Computed example of a mutant assay.
Amino acid sequence: MNIEYLKYFAELAKLQHYGKAAKALNISQPGLSHAIKTLEDEYGVPLFQKEGRNVSLSRYGKELMQDVEEILDAYLRMEERAAGLRTEEKTVRIGTVYPLAAGTIPHMLREFGATFPFIIYNRLTPEIEEGLLDGKYDIGFCSELLKSEELEYYPLRESYIAAAVPEGHPLEGKENITLKEAAKYPQVMFSRTSGFRSLQEQIFAEQGIQVKSVCEAEEIEVITGLVENGFGISILPYMDIVRLHHITAIPVQTSSWKSKFYIARRKYGIRTAQEEAFFQHWRK
């Protein structure tokens, strides 16, 4: 089946004149006649009948016309979808854990000089792994090693435990502090519905320190807002969002907790040159 010949068939059926149809299709009249003759030979039936200087569909042509229209409609939808995929393919989809989303990823894109369009999605590491595997994301930034052998990943940077304090706080000028020093001040903690709450409790428990929160919140944006407005300080893994507020992050020297962030992607896949260059730029 030649899709172009089916287009010719449909146009001739509509205009009912070889000369007019050939002009509309921007082909020669002999070329159109050859295409119709080829279809008739292929199907074994006459598709048109002469009516003076014009032509009309034969009874066989009328029966085939509905199928031809459906085929051409489906072909048009396929072309439109393919065009959409080509446009989408130029957009790099980035899945990232929240600690890197606000500052690190935009900074990396700017430092690289990215000119490609991109979309950033905030997700948890398991969701990023799943998204990389099923093609939702092109590049992932995660907080732990991924298990799938279909993915490649490289360490990007380490995180550490810090005390987030508001401007003007007595601890603000210190280069680092101990957990005991931090425990003397009211604590803003994550709520028990947050995955970070257990980490906060673990950090204090390792030092045999008991603290009671003065207020709690589930999201880091609210935690930083409470700290910024003087409700207390917060012990948490360093996150770039701290830099977006009037808050100082002081490393806690007595905490041994460390976490690595990784850049990851599928081992095999179709990539644009810019996407490949960006990944390789940050691969360690």
Rank of each mutant, 00 (worst) to 15 (best):
H281E: 14
N122G: 01
S28Y: 07
N122A: 08
I220W: 02
A35Q: 05
A183N: 13
Q49V: 14
L57K: 03
R271Y: 12
R123E: 12
K37S: 10
Y262M: 00
M65A: 06
Q274L: 08
K284W: 00
K20A: 13
Q29P: 01
F204M: 13
G195C: 08
Q49S: 11
F196Y: 10
L226M: 07
D138Q: 13
S213K: 08
R271Q: 09
A205P: 06
G61E: 05
N122Q: 03
L132H: 03
V242W: 14
G230T: 01
D138A: 12
G103T: 15
D240Y: 09
L109D: 07
T38F: 02
T193I: 01
S213P: 12
D41H: 06
G135F: 11
E181P: 09
E80P: 01
A21Q: 11
F48T: 02
E42W: 04
K284M: 05
E218I: 11
A183C: 14
L156W: 01
E181K: 08
I250T: 03
E152C: 00
I27E: 03
Y153G: 00
T91Q: 13
C215Q: 09
L32S: 01
L72M: 09
S143I: 05
L12N: 12
A162H: 14
I128G: 00
I235H: 05
E216C: 02
F261D: 02
I128A: 00
L12E: 13
Q253T: 10
V97N: 00
P46H: 03
I120E: 03
Y238A: 14
F279Q: 07
K14R: 14
T224M: 13
T248S: 15
T87I: 15
M189L: 12
E51A: 13
H169V: 04
G44Y: 07
N54A: 05
G95R: 00
R266D: 12
L109Y: 11
E167K: 11
E201T: 08
R93W: 09
D240W: 02
A205L: 11
M1C: 05
L179P: 13
F48W: 05
R265N: 07
P186Q: 06
E63G: 14
A10S: 13
Y98M: 09
T104V: 10
A102H: 08
R283E: 10
T193V: 06
D41I: 07
A273K: 15
F141Q: 00
Y137L: 02
G168F: 13
I177G: 14
F204Y: 15
L244K: 13
Q280K: 03
L145Q: 04
T272S: 15
G113I: 02
Y75H: 07
W282T: 11
G269Q: 09
L47P: 07
P30H: 00
I71K: 15
Q16H: 04
S159R: 01
L124V: 02
P251D: 04
F190S: 07
R283H: 06
E275P: 04
F261Y: 15
L25I: 03
A35I: 06
I105S: 07
Q66C: 01
K147C: 10
T91V: 15
R93H: 11
E127C: 03
G103P: 04
G84F: 10
A264G: 04
L85I: 11
I223V: 14
I71W: 06
W257P: 08
P237F: 00
I94A: 00
T193F: 07
E228D: 05
Q274H: 03
T87W: 02
L57E: 14
E80G: 00
K212A: 12
R192A: 12
P186L: 06
G44V: 01
S159V: 01
